[in-house]
Each structure stands twice: as structure tokens, then as C-alpha cells.
């Protein structure tokens, strides 16, 4: 097992120390660990984000494997635990916390009070809207990065990241999934990449600046 110092040195070799130190200080929460959330978490783990808070109530199902970052041996496990194990295989020194529960308007403020940035990665539109409204009303100091529309195949470049409100970013093509446009790994991963990449930008360019003030 590489030591914490060895992994830090390897990440610094790739990213530079100044950037790595910002990533290491960041606390990111991921709400929903399906196609978006699992891929966002893996991306953020690889670049050495210091603290990841994973929240989902569900277990890994065979029909998840067409797009979600889990393996056969995870079937039946809680997504929080299955994803935590994968993250620690990439970097055992990331501080991973998990909550295996349903997120509702009444627990959002408590669950996410410690996060710098919240990633919305739900599937159901009413849940997405609930989280966005609750975070924007009750946690106005937090950054929120949300996924909205990533179904089907092709048309990669229709998936975009847009600043919607001052601390609210939306990633996707704004088109719902349906029978003709099912959720599929490549395009879901593009959208997850947008969310994770927006988080990286916020950590490196904005969280640091707030801390300096």
C-alpha cells in the first residue's frame, strides 16, 4: 500500500502542489449515487479531493451496470458502501463519509451543512427540484452543481454547463430520458464529467479565493 505521502507526491507531480493543496482541502457532497453520482465521485477521487460525502438510500442492481460505476461483485450492496470501497481503492487517504438514507427537504440543511460544494445527481425531476430549491433557500452560501438531461446517445456537444444563478450551475441538455432516449453509460458519463469538472473549477478558482479573503 502506498503511503499518504507517496500518493500526495504523485498527485502533486501530475497537478502541481498549489492546485493539489486546494483539492485536498475541499469537502464535496454528492446527492444520489447513480449514473451521475458514481461517476462524479470516481472523477473527484482520482484528482485527490480531500473529503467526499456520499448520500444515497439504494442498493446496486443489475440494471444499474449499463451506466453506473459499480461491478458484479457490488450487486445487492448499498451504493454508499460499494462506492466508498472503490474510492478507497483509488486513494485510501480520502476522507469518505456516507449517509444511507433518502434526502428530503427536511434533512438537506443538516446533511450538507459541512460541504463546500453540493453535487445534485438524482434521477427523478421532482427530487432534483426539491434539492435545488432547498439548498438555494436554506444553504445560500453553498455552491450547487446539478445534472439536467443526459439521456440517449450521440449529440455529445449538446451537453453543456451553464451558470444559472450566482452559485448554481446546471450541466446537461435539459431533455428528459424516455423509452426512445434511455440512459446509457457514454452520455451519462459526459454529463457526470461536466459536473465533476465544474466542481474542480470551483475548488481551484473560487473556493481558494473565498478562503484568501
Amino acid at each position: 500500500m502506498p503511503s499518504q505521502e507517496e500518493i500526495y507526491a504523485a498527485l502533486c507531480q501530475r497537478h502541481g502542489k498549489a492546485l493539489q493543496d486546494k483539492l485536498q482541502k475541499a469537502k464535496i457532497a454528492i446527492a444520489g449515487l447513480g449514473g451521475l453520482g458514481s461517476n462524479i465521485a470516481i472523477g473527484l477521487a482520482r484528482i485527490g479531493v480531500g473529503q467526499l460525502h456520499l448520500v444515497d438510500f439504494d442498493r446496486v442492481d443489475l440494471t444499474n451496470l449499463n451506466r453506473q460505476h459499480y461491478f458484479i461483485h457490488h450487486l445487492g450492496q448499498y451504493k454508499t458502501e460499494a462506492l466508498k470501497k472503490q474510492i478507497l481503492e483509488i486513494n485510501p487517504y480520502i476522507r469518505v463519509s456516507t449517509d444511507c438514507l433518502k434526502i428530503t427537504a427536511s434533512n438537506v440543511a443538516t446533511l450538507f451543512s459541512d460541504a463546500d460544494i453540493i453535487c445534485e445527481a438524482f434521477d427523478v425531476p421532482e427530487n432534483k427540484a426539491m434539492l435545488a430549491n432547498t439548498v438555494l433557500e436554506q444553504l445560500p452560501d453553498k455552491w450547487l452543481v446539478s445534472g439536467n438531461g443526459m439521456a440517449g446517445y450521440g449529440k455529445s456537444n449538446l451537453i453543456q454547463t451553464k451558470a444559472i444563478m450566482s452559485k448554481f450551475y446546471l450541466c446537461g441538455d435539459n431533455i428528459s430520458s424516455n423509452e426512445a432516449q434511455p440512459l446509457m453509460a457514454p452520455r451519462v458519463a459526459i454529463c457526470a464529467g461536466h459536473e465533476a469538472n465544474m466542481v474542480a473549477e470551483l475548488i481551484i478558482e473560487h473556493l481558494g479565493k473565498e478562503a484568501e479573503k
Partner: peptide, 10 residues
């Protein structure tokens, strides 16, 4: 006014 309309998928 900014209106965000959420769609399914994730």
C-alpha cells in the same frame, strides 16, 4: 426571472 425546469435522468 430565471426558471430552471428539471428533467428525468441521472
Amino acid at each position: 426571472l430565471e426558471i430552471v425546469s428539471f428533467v428525468g435522468g441521472g
